[in-house]
Design a protein around this nucleic acid. Structure first.
Lengths: 230, 230
DNA sequence: TGTACATCAGTGAACGCGCGTTCACTGATGTAC
DNA sequence: TGTACATCAGTGAACGCGCGTTCACTGATGTAC
Protein backbone atom coordinates (compact mmCIF):
# COMPACT_ATOMS: atom_id res chain seq x y z
CA UNK A 1 0.00 0.00 0.00
CA UNK A 2 3.01 2.28 -0.26
CA UNK A 3 3.21 4.86 -3.00
CA UNK A 4 5.61 2.60 -4.91
CA UNK A 5 3.35 -0.43 -4.98
CA UNK A 6 1.68 0.49 -8.26
CA UNK A 7 0.46 -1.75 -10.96
CA UNK A 8 2.00 -1.11 -14.39
CA UNK A 9 -1.32 0.28 -15.51
CA UNK A 10 -1.40 2.78 -12.67
CA UNK A 11 2.15 3.75 -13.41
CA UNK A 12 1.35 4.30 -17.06
CA UNK A 13 -1.75 6.27 -16.19
CA UNK A 14 0.20 8.63 -14.00
CA UNK A 15 2.89 9.03 -16.62
CA UNK A 16 0.38 10.07 -19.28
CA UNK A 17 -1.26 12.49 -16.86
CA UNK A 18 2.12 14.11 -16.35
CA UNK A 19 2.71 14.37 -20.08
CA UNK A 20 -0.69 15.99 -20.53
CA UNK A 21 0.10 18.54 -17.85
CA UNK A 22 3.48 19.28 -19.36
CA UNK A 23 1.92 20.01 -22.75
CA UNK A 24 -0.69 22.10 -21.00
CA UNK A 25 2.03 24.27 -19.46
CA UNK A 26 3.69 24.68 -22.82
CA UNK A 27 0.40 25.78 -24.29
CA UNK A 28 -0.24 28.23 -21.46
CA UNK A 29 3.22 29.69 -21.97
CA UNK A 30 2.41 30.24 -25.62
CA UNK A 31 -1.08 31.62 -25.57
CA UNK A 32 -2.23 32.05 -22.00
CA UNK A 33 -4.26 29.91 -19.65
CA UNK A 34 -7.63 30.83 -21.12
CA UNK A 35 -6.60 29.42 -24.50
CA UNK A 36 -5.84 26.01 -23.05
CA UNK A 37 -7.45 23.39 -25.29
CA UNK A 38 -7.84 19.69 -24.58
CA UNK A 39 -8.02 18.86 -28.27
CA UNK A 40 -4.80 20.70 -28.99
CA UNK A 41 -3.02 18.90 -26.17
CA UNK A 42 -4.24 15.55 -27.43
CA UNK A 43 -3.00 16.33 -30.90
CA UNK A 44 0.45 17.18 -29.56
CA UNK A 45 0.51 13.88 -27.72
CA UNK A 46 -0.46 12.05 -30.88
CA UNK A 47 -3.82 10.90 -29.62
CA UNK A 48 -7.39 11.82 -30.35
CA UNK A 49 -9.24 14.39 -28.27
CA UNK A 50 -11.65 12.09 -26.45
CA UNK A 51 -8.73 9.97 -25.20
CA UNK A 52 -7.89 12.62 -22.64
CA UNK A 53 -11.15 11.94 -20.87
CA UNK A 54 -9.57 8.73 -19.60
CA UNK A 55 -7.20 10.93 -17.58
CA UNK A 56 -9.15 14.04 -16.68
CA UNK A 57 -12.87 14.33 -16.09
CA UNK A 58 -12.96 17.61 -18.00
CA UNK A 59 -11.09 20.79 -18.77
CA UNK A 60 -11.74 22.29 -15.36
CA UNK A 61 -10.18 19.36 -13.56
CA UNK A 62 -7.03 19.72 -15.61
CA UNK A 63 -6.77 23.42 -14.81
CA UNK A 64 -7.36 22.81 -11.12
CA UNK A 65 -4.61 20.20 -11.21
CA UNK A 66 -2.25 22.73 -12.80
CA UNK A 67 -3.06 25.28 -10.14
CA UNK A 68 -2.52 22.70 -7.44
CA UNK A 69 0.87 21.79 -8.89
CA UNK A 70 1.81 25.46 -9.04
CA UNK A 71 1.04 25.96 -5.35
CA UNK A 72 2.81 22.72 -4.51
CA UNK A 73 5.88 23.83 -6.44
CA UNK A 74 6.07 27.20 -4.72
CA UNK A 75 5.58 25.64 -1.30
CA UNK A 76 8.33 23.12 -2.01
CA UNK A 77 10.65 25.87 -3.22
CA UNK A 78 10.06 27.71 0.03
CA UNK A 79 10.69 24.64 2.13
CA UNK A 80 13.83 23.74 0.21
CA UNK A 81 15.18 27.26 0.56
CA UNK A 82 14.44 27.32 4.29
CA UNK A 83 16.15 23.97 4.77
CA UNK A 84 19.20 24.99 2.77
CA UNK A 85 19.37 28.22 4.69
CA UNK A 86 19.22 26.34 7.97
CA UNK A 87 21.98 23.99 6.87
CA UNK A 88 24.08 27.00 5.94
CA UNK A 89 23.60 28.27 9.46
CA UNK A 90 21.59 31.30 8.40
CA UNK A 91 18.74 32.80 10.37
CA UNK A 92 16.94 36.13 10.71
CA UNK A 93 17.55 38.52 7.83
CA UNK A 94 19.61 36.13 5.69
CA UNK A 95 16.96 33.46 6.02
CA UNK A 96 14.28 35.87 4.93
CA UNK A 97 16.39 37.00 2.02
CA UNK A 98 16.91 33.37 1.03
CA UNK A 99 13.17 32.80 0.95
CA UNK A 100 12.69 35.93 -1.10
CA UNK A 101 15.24 34.87 -3.69
CA UNK A 102 13.74 31.40 -3.83
CA UNK A 103 10.41 32.99 -4.59
CA UNK A 104 11.82 35.08 -7.41
CA UNK A 105 13.79 32.20 -8.84
CA UNK A 106 10.73 30.02 -8.86
CA UNK A 107 8.65 32.73 -10.51
CA UNK A 108 11.22 33.50 -13.19
CA UNK A 109 11.57 29.81 -14.04
CA UNK A 110 8.02 29.89 -15.34
CA UNK A 111 6.14 33.19 -15.15
CA UNK A 112 2.87 31.67 -16.31
CA UNK A 113 2.90 29.29 -13.40
CA UNK A 114 3.29 32.28 -11.09
CA UNK A 115 0.44 34.14 -12.74
CA UNK A 116 -1.79 31.11 -12.49
CA UNK A 117 -1.59 31.61 -8.72
CA UNK A 118 -1.27 35.35 -8.38
CA UNK A 119 -2.44 36.79 -11.68
CA UNK A 120 -5.84 37.97 -12.84
CA UNK A 121 -8.43 35.85 -11.04
CA UNK A 122 -10.69 33.68 -13.18
CA UNK A 123 -14.28 34.88 -12.66
CA UNK A 124 -16.26 32.30 -10.78
CA UNK A 125 -13.35 30.03 -9.98
CA UNK A 126 -12.90 28.94 -6.39
CA UNK A 127 -9.92 26.86 -5.39
CA UNK A 128 -10.73 23.59 -3.63
CA UNK A 129 -9.77 23.38 0.02
CA UNK A 130 -6.68 21.26 -0.38
CA UNK A 131 -5.12 24.05 -2.42
CA UNK A 132 -5.86 26.52 0.36
CA UNK A 133 -4.04 24.16 2.68
CA UNK A 134 -0.93 24.16 0.50
CA UNK A 135 -1.00 27.95 0.59
CA UNK A 136 -1.15 27.73 4.37
CA UNK A 137 1.81 25.38 4.42
CA UNK A 138 3.79 27.92 2.41
CA UNK A 139 2.80 30.70 4.76
CA UNK A 140 3.88 28.56 7.68
CA UNK A 141 7.45 28.33 6.38
CA UNK A 142 7.49 32.07 5.94
CA UNK A 143 6.15 32.63 9.44
CA UNK A 144 8.89 30.43 10.89
CA UNK A 145 11.51 32.62 9.29
CA UNK A 146 9.79 35.83 10.33
CA UNK A 147 9.35 34.78 13.94
CA UNK A 148 12.98 33.69 14.15
CA UNK A 149 14.06 37.09 12.85
CA UNK A 150 12.70 38.66 16.01
CA UNK A 151 11.09 41.74 14.49
CA UNK A 152 10.51 44.61 16.91
CA UNK A 153 6.99 45.84 17.70
CA UNK A 154 5.88 48.84 15.70
CA UNK A 155 7.12 52.20 16.95
CA UNK A 156 4.40 54.51 15.58
CA UNK A 157 0.83 54.66 16.92
CA UNK A 158 -0.47 53.68 13.48
CA UNK A 159 1.80 50.67 13.42
CA UNK A 160 0.69 49.64 16.89
CA UNK A 161 -2.95 49.95 15.86
CA UNK A 162 -2.27 47.74 12.88
CA UNK A 163 -0.66 45.12 15.07
CA UNK A 164 -3.73 45.32 17.29
CA UNK A 165 -5.83 44.47 14.26
CA UNK A 166 -3.58 41.54 13.45
CA UNK A 167 -3.89 40.30 17.01
CA UNK A 168 -7.63 39.94 16.41
CA UNK A 169 -7.22 38.21 13.06
CA UNK A 170 -4.71 35.48 13.62
CA UNK A 171 -6.63 32.58 12.08
CA UNK A 172 -4.60 32.56 8.86
CA UNK A 173 -1.41 31.93 10.87
CA UNK A 174 -2.85 28.76 12.35
CA UNK A 175 -2.61 27.91 16.02
CA UNK A 176 0.84 29.31 16.64
CA UNK A 177 1.04 31.41 19.79
CA UNK A 178 4.83 31.58 19.34
CA UNK A 179 4.38 33.82 16.32
CA UNK A 180 3.84 37.35 17.64
CA UNK A 181 2.17 40.21 15.79
CA UNK A 182 5.39 41.86 14.58
CA UNK A 183 6.22 38.58 12.84
CA UNK A 184 2.78 38.47 11.23
CA UNK A 185 3.33 41.98 10.06
CA UNK A 186 6.71 41.15 8.59
CA UNK A 187 5.30 38.13 6.79
CA UNK A 188 2.52 40.18 5.22
CA UNK A 189 4.98 42.84 4.13
CA UNK A 190 7.22 40.14 2.64
CA UNK A 191 4.36 38.64 0.75
CA UNK A 192 2.74 41.79 -0.60
CA UNK A 193 5.89 43.77 -1.37
CA UNK A 194 7.69 40.97 -3.11
CA UNK A 195 4.57 40.05 -5.01
CA UNK A 196 4.28 43.68 -6.07
CA UNK A 197 7.77 44.06 -7.44
CA UNK A 198 7.82 40.54 -8.86
CA UNK A 199 4.55 40.72 -10.72
CA UNK A 200 5.48 44.06 -12.25
CA UNK A 201 8.74 42.49 -13.37
CA UNK A 202 7.10 39.39 -14.83
CA UNK A 203 4.52 41.46 -16.64
CA UNK A 204 7.34 43.45 -18.24
CA UNK A 205 6.47 46.82 -16.74
CA UNK A 206 10.09 47.52 -15.79
CA UNK A 207 11.82 46.54 -18.99
CA UNK A 208 9.97 49.24 -20.91
CA UNK A 209 11.34 51.70 -18.38
CA UNK A 210 14.92 50.55 -18.71
CA UNK A 211 15.16 49.47 -15.07
CA UNK A 212 16.92 46.37 -13.82
CA UNK A 213 14.26 44.22 -12.10
CA UNK A 214 16.84 42.29 -10.10
CA UNK A 215 18.00 45.46 -8.38
CA UNK A 216 14.48 46.61 -7.65
CA UNK A 217 13.78 43.23 -6.14
CA UNK A 218 16.93 43.29 -4.03
CA UNK A 219 16.06 46.76 -2.80
CA UNK A 220 12.77 45.45 -1.45
CA UNK A 221 14.46 42.38 0.01
CA UNK A 222 16.75 44.75 1.83
CA UNK A 223 13.88 46.62 3.43
CA UNK A 224 12.54 43.32 4.74
CA UNK A 225 15.70 41.66 5.93
CA UNK A 226 18.21 44.37 6.83
CA UNK A 227 19.25 44.60 10.45
CA UNK A 228 17.34 41.54 11.57
CA UNK A 229 18.82 39.19 14.08
CA UNK A 230 20.53 36.21 12.57
CA UNK B 1 -12.24 72.07 -36.09
CA UNK B 2 -12.81 71.99 -32.34
CA UNK B 3 -13.83 68.78 -30.65
CA UNK B 4 -17.42 70.04 -30.44
CA UNK B 5 -17.80 70.77 -34.13
CA UNK B 6 -19.09 67.32 -34.96
CA UNK B 7 -21.58 66.32 -37.52
CA UNK B 8 -24.57 64.41 -36.17
CA UNK B 9 -23.21 61.29 -37.80
CA UNK B 10 -19.88 61.63 -36.08
CA UNK B 11 -21.62 62.23 -32.79
CA UNK B 12 -23.76 59.14 -33.25
CA UNK B 13 -20.74 57.09 -34.24
CA UNK B 14 -18.91 58.05 -31.10
CA UNK B 15 -21.94 57.33 -28.98
CA UNK B 16 -22.29 53.81 -30.34
CA UNK B 17 -18.58 53.21 -29.84
CA UNK B 18 -19.03 54.16 -26.20
CA UNK B 19 -21.97 51.81 -25.82
CA UNK B 20 -19.97 48.99 -27.33
CA UNK B 21 -17.15 49.60 -24.89
CA UNK B 22 -19.53 49.73 -21.96
CA UNK B 23 -21.01 46.35 -22.86
CA UNK B 24 -17.49 45.04 -23.34
CA UNK B 25 -16.63 46.02 -19.79
CA UNK B 26 -19.72 44.34 -18.47
CA UNK B 27 -18.77 41.19 -20.30
CA UNK B 28 -15.22 41.30 -18.99
CA UNK B 29 -16.55 41.72 -15.46
CA UNK B 30 -18.67 38.63 -15.94
CA UNK B 31 -16.34 36.20 -17.64
CA UNK B 32 -12.92 37.77 -18.01
CA UNK B 33 -11.19 39.62 -20.77
CA UNK B 34 -10.30 36.54 -22.78
CA UNK B 35 -13.96 35.63 -23.17
CA UNK B 36 -14.81 38.97 -24.75
CA UNK B 37 -16.95 38.30 -27.81
CA UNK B 38 -17.95 40.78 -30.51
CA UNK B 39 -21.02 38.77 -31.40
CA UNK B 40 -22.23 38.72 -27.82
CA UNK B 41 -21.76 42.47 -27.50
CA UNK B 42 -23.70 43.06 -30.70
CA UNK B 43 -26.53 40.88 -29.46
CA UNK B 44 -26.73 42.88 -26.23
CA UNK B 45 -26.92 46.08 -28.25
CA UNK B 46 -29.71 44.64 -30.37
CA UNK B 47 -27.72 44.56 -33.57
CA UNK B 48 -26.16 41.87 -35.68
CA UNK B 49 -22.53 40.85 -35.26
CA UNK B 50 -21.10 42.30 -38.46
CA UNK B 51 -22.53 45.72 -37.59
CA UNK B 52 -19.76 46.24 -35.07
CA UNK B 53 -17.21 46.29 -37.86
CA UNK B 54 -18.52 49.75 -38.71
CA UNK B 55 -17.07 50.87 -35.37
CA UNK B 56 -14.03 48.72 -34.73
CA UNK B 57 -11.72 47.20 -37.29
CA UNK B 58 -11.57 43.97 -35.30
CA UNK B 59 -11.53 42.44 -31.85
CA UNK B 60 -7.97 43.50 -31.14
CA UNK B 61 -8.73 47.14 -31.79
CA UNK B 62 -11.58 47.03 -29.31
CA UNK B 63 -9.37 45.49 -26.62
CA UNK B 64 -6.62 48.01 -27.24
CA UNK B 65 -9.18 50.76 -26.89
CA UNK B 66 -10.32 49.33 -23.55
CA UNK B 67 -6.74 49.18 -22.30
CA UNK B 68 -6.18 52.75 -23.42
CA UNK B 69 -9.28 53.90 -21.57
CA UNK B 70 -8.14 52.06 -18.47
CA UNK B 71 -4.77 53.82 -18.47
CA UNK B 72 -6.47 57.13 -19.23
CA UNK B 73 -8.84 56.62 -16.31
CA UNK B 74 -6.10 55.84 -13.84
CA UNK B 75 -4.02 58.79 -15.02
CA UNK B 76 -7.02 61.08 -14.64
CA UNK B 77 -7.74 59.74 -11.17
CA UNK B 78 -4.16 60.52 -10.19
CA UNK B 79 -4.30 64.01 -11.61
CA UNK B 80 -7.63 64.75 -9.97
CA UNK B 81 -6.38 63.51 -6.60
CA UNK B 82 -3.20 65.57 -6.88
CA UNK B 83 -5.20 68.68 -7.77
CA UNK B 84 -7.67 68.17 -4.94
CA UNK B 85 -4.81 67.60 -2.55
CA UNK B 86 -3.15 70.81 -3.68
CA UNK B 87 -6.38 72.75 -3.23
CA UNK B 88 -6.66 71.32 0.28
CA UNK B 89 -3.20 72.68 0.98
CA UNK B 90 -1.64 69.24 1.40
CA UNK B 91 1.87 68.32 0.36
CA UNK B 92 4.51 65.76 1.23
CA UNK B 93 3.19 62.71 3.05
CA UNK B 94 -0.51 63.66 2.90
CA UNK B 95 -0.24 64.25 -0.85
CA UNK B 96 1.31 60.84 -1.34
CA UNK B 97 -1.36 59.25 0.81
CA UNK B 98 -4.02 61.00 -1.26
CA UNK B 99 -2.59 59.54 -4.46
CA UNK B 100 -2.44 56.10 -2.88
CA UNK B 101 -6.09 56.22 -1.85
CA UNK B 102 -7.10 57.48 -5.25
CA UNK B 103 -5.35 54.50 -6.77
CA UNK B 104 -7.16 52.08 -4.50
CA UNK B 105 -10.50 53.77 -5.03
CA UNK B 106 -10.08 53.62 -8.76
CA UNK B 107 -9.08 49.96 -8.65
CA UNK B 108 -11.95 48.94 -6.37
CA UNK B 109 -14.46 50.73 -8.59
CA UNK B 110 -13.73 48.17 -11.29
CA UNK B 111 -11.18 45.47 -10.52
CA UNK B 112 -11.21 44.10 -14.05
CA UNK B 113 -10.14 47.44 -15.40
CA UNK B 114 -7.22 47.36 -13.00
CA UNK B 115 -6.25 43.83 -14.02
CA UNK B 116 -6.41 44.77 -17.67
CA UNK B 117 -3.45 47.05 -16.94
CA UNK B 118 -1.60 45.18 -14.20
CA UNK B 119 -2.88 41.62 -14.37
CA UNK B 120 -1.61 38.59 -16.21
CA UNK B 121 -0.02 39.83 -19.43
CA UNK B 122 -1.56 38.65 -22.69
CA UNK B 123 1.07 36.62 -24.57
CA UNK B 124 2.22 38.45 -27.64
CA UNK B 125 0.40 41.68 -26.91
CA UNK B 126 2.37 44.91 -27.07
CA UNK B 127 0.75 48.18 -26.11
CA UNK B 128 0.95 50.92 -28.75
CA UNK B 129 3.13 53.87 -27.95
CA UNK B 130 0.40 56.32 -27.05
CA UNK B 131 -0.56 54.03 -24.17
CA UNK B 132 3.01 54.05 -22.92
CA UNK B 133 2.81 57.81 -22.95
CA UNK B 134 -0.28 57.82 -20.76
CA UNK B 135 1.59 55.59 -18.31
CA UNK B 136 4.38 58.15 -18.31
CA UNK B 137 1.93 60.95 -17.64
CA UNK B 138 0.68 59.05 -14.61
CA UNK B 139 4.20 58.48 -13.38
CA UNK B 140 4.87 62.17 -13.77
CA UNK B 141 2.12 63.11 -11.33
CA UNK B 142 3.50 60.61 -8.87
CA UNK B 143 7.02 61.97 -9.28
CA UNK B 144 5.80 65.49 -8.57
CA UNK B 145 4.38 64.36 -5.27
CA UNK B 146 7.46 62.32 -4.37
CA UNK B 147 9.88 65.12 -5.18
CA UNK B 148 7.83 67.58 -3.16
CA UNK B 149 7.91 65.22 -0.17
CA UNK B 150 11.67 65.74 0.04
CA UNK B 151 12.70 62.17 0.76
CA UNK B 152 16.13 61.78 2.37
CA UNK B 153 18.92 59.92 0.59
CA UNK B 154 19.33 56.29 1.60
CA UNK B 155 21.25 55.72 4.81
CA UNK B 156 22.55 52.19 4.21
CA UNK B 157 25.30 51.32 1.72
CA UNK B 158 22.88 49.05 -0.14
CA UNK B 159 20.36 51.85 -0.42
CA UNK B 160 23.02 54.21 -1.69
CA UNK B 161 24.11 51.67 -4.29
CA UNK B 162 20.54 51.35 -5.43
CA UNK B 163 20.21 55.10 -5.82
CA UNK B 164 23.42 55.01 -7.82
CA UNK B 165 21.76 52.56 -10.17
CA UNK B 166 18.72 54.79 -10.46
CA UNK B 167 20.96 57.73 -11.28
CA UNK B 168 22.10 55.81 -14.36
CA UNK B 169 18.59 54.84 -15.42
CA UNK B 170 16.56 57.98 -15.29
CA UNK B 171 14.98 57.80 -18.73
CA UNK B 172 11.58 56.64 -17.43
CA UNK B 173 11.32 59.80 -15.32
CA UNK B 174 11.64 62.00 -18.40
CA UNK B 175 13.88 65.03 -18.51
CA UNK B 176 13.38 66.20 -14.97
CA UNK B 177 16.62 67.12 -13.23
CA UNK B 178 14.56 68.49 -10.32
CA UNK B 179 13.56 64.95 -9.35
CA UNK B 180 16.43 63.47 -7.38
CA UNK B 181 17.17 59.78 -6.87
CA UNK B 182 15.50 59.50 -3.45
CA UNK B 183 12.29 60.69 -5.12
CA UNK B 184 12.65 58.09 -7.87
CA UNK B 185 13.15 55.50 -5.22
CA UNK B 186 10.07 56.60 -3.32
CA UNK B 187 7.97 56.56 -6.48
CA UNK B 188 9.06 53.01 -7.32
CA UNK B 189 8.32 51.86 -3.78
CA UNK B 190 4.89 53.53 -3.97
CA UNK B 191 4.13 51.84 -7.23
CA UNK B 192 5.33 48.34 -6.47
CA UNK B 193 4.19 48.12 -2.85
CA UNK B 194 0.74 49.47 -3.46
CA UNK B 195 0.34 47.33 -6.52
CA UNK B 196 1.37 44.36 -4.41
CA UNK B 197 -1.13 44.84 -1.64
CA UNK B 198 -3.85 46.01 -4.01
CA UNK B 199 -3.62 43.17 -6.48
CA UNK B 200 -3.67 40.61 -3.67
CA UNK B 201 -6.76 42.32 -2.33
CA UNK B 202 -8.52 42.43 -5.69
CA UNK B 203 -7.72 38.80 -6.38
CA UNK B 204 -9.31 37.90 -3.07
CA UNK B 205 -6.21 36.47 -1.41
CA UNK B 206 -6.86 38.37 1.83
CA UNK B 207 -10.54 37.65 2.29
CA UNK B 208 -9.90 33.93 2.58
CA UNK B 209 -7.48 34.77 5.38
CA UNK B 210 -9.95 36.90 7.30
CA UNK B 211 -7.84 40.04 6.98
CA UNK B 212 -9.15 43.53 6.33
CA UNK B 213 -7.61 44.68 3.04
CA UNK B 214 -8.21 48.35 3.84
CA UNK B 215 -6.01 48.13 6.91
CA UNK B 216 -3.27 46.30 5.08
CA UNK B 217 -3.36 48.98 2.42
CA UNK B 218 -3.24 51.79 4.94
CA UNK B 219 -0.31 50.12 6.67
CA UNK B 220 1.65 50.26 3.43
CA UNK B 221 0.54 53.83 2.76
CA UNK B 222 1.92 54.69 6.17
CA UNK B 223 5.36 53.28 5.35
CA UNK B 224 5.44 55.49 2.26
CA UNK B 225 4.08 58.73 3.62
CA UNK B 226 4.83 58.87 7.35
CA UNK B 227 7.15 61.59 8.52
CA UNK B 228 7.46 63.30 5.15
CA UNK B 229 7.57 67.04 4.86
CA UNK B 230 4.18 68.58 4.22
C1' DT C 1 0.62 -23.27 -18.51
C1' DG C 2 -3.48 -22.39 -20.76
C1' DT C 3 -8.01 -20.70 -21.18
C1' DA C 4 -12.09 -17.40 -20.16
C1' DC C 5 -13.23 -13.27 -18.73
C1' DA C 6 -12.92 -8.43 -17.11
C1' DT C 7 -10.70 -4.16 -17.36
C1' DC C 8 -9.44 -0.28 -19.60
C1' DA C 9 -6.78 2.75 -23.27
C1' DG C 10 -7.79 4.74 -27.32
C1' DT C 11 -10.57 5.60 -31.82
C1' DG C 12 -13.72 7.88 -35.03
C1' DA C 13 -18.01 9.80 -35.76
C1' DA C 14 -21.10 12.93 -34.22
C1' DC C 15 -23.56 16.85 -31.56
C1' DG C 16 -24.26 21.55 -30.83
C1' DC C 17 -22.09 25.59 -30.16
C1' DG C 18 -20.06 30.17 -30.74
C1' DC C 19 -16.40 32.45 -32.59
C1' DG C 20 -14.20 36.27 -35.97
C1' DT C 21 -14.72 37.87 -40.24
C1' DT C 22 -16.25 38.67 -45.50
C1' DC C 23 -19.59 39.87 -48.64
C1' DA C 24 -23.36 41.65 -51.36
C1' DC C 25 -27.12 44.02 -50.32
C1' DT C 26 -31.07 47.44 -48.42
C1' DG C 27 -32.55 51.60 -46.72
C1' DA C 28 -32.00 55.72 -44.31
C1' DT C 29 -29.41 60.03 -43.76
C1' DG C 30 -26.77 63.78 -45.33
C1' DT C 31 -24.86 66.86 -49.25
C1' DA C 32 -24.59 69.56 -53.60
C1' DC C 33 -26.72 72.04 -57.02
C1' DT D 1 -37.40 74.17 -51.92
C1' DG D 2 -36.76 70.23 -54.57
C1' DT D 3 -34.18 66.87 -56.87
C1' DA D 4 -29.97 63.67 -57.76
C1' DC D 5 -26.44 61.64 -55.83
C1' DA D 6 -23.10 60.02 -52.33
C1' DT D 7 -22.35 58.34 -47.88
C1' DC D 8 -22.79 55.16 -44.50
C1' DA D 9 -25.35 52.19 -40.73
C1' DG D 10 -27.00 47.87 -40.43
C1' DT D 11 -28.69 43.10 -42.20
C1' DG D 12 -28.58 38.18 -43.27
C1' DA D 13 -26.23 34.56 -45.30
C1' DA D 14 -22.16 32.27 -45.47
C1' DC D 15 -17.21 30.56 -44.58
C1' DG D 16 -14.12 27.90 -41.97
C1' DC D 17 -12.75 26.97 -37.65
C1' DG D 18 -11.99 24.80 -33.15
C1' DC D 19 -14.02 23.94 -29.01
C1' DG D 20 -15.82 20.52 -25.05
C1' DT D 21 -18.04 16.52 -24.65
C1' DT D 22 -20.87 11.86 -25.54
C1' DC D 23 -21.16 7.54 -27.47
C1' DA D 24 -20.62 2.95 -29.28
C1' DC D 25 -16.99 0.49 -30.51
C1' DT D 26 -12.11 -2.14 -31.13
C1' DG D 27 -8.19 -4.19 -29.39
C1' DA D 28 -4.72 -4.78 -26.12
C1' DT D 29 -3.50 -5.79 -21.32
C1' DG D 30 -4.18 -7.81 -16.99
C1' DT D 31 -6.55 -11.30 -13.74
C1' DA D 32 -8.68 -15.66 -12.00
C1' DC D 33 -9.07 -20.37 -12.13
Amino acid sequence: MTADAKTPRERYRQQVREEVKQRAWEQIAGSGASALSLNAIAKQLGMSGPALYRYFANRDELITELIRDAYRGLADAFTAAADASAVAGEAGGPRIAALARAMRGWALADPHRYFLIYGTPVPGYHAPQDITEIAGEMMSVLLDACAAAGPEPAASPEGAAFEGHLAERRAWAGDRPDVREPALRLALAFWSRLHGVLSLELAGHFTGMGLDPARLFEAEVHTLSAGRAG
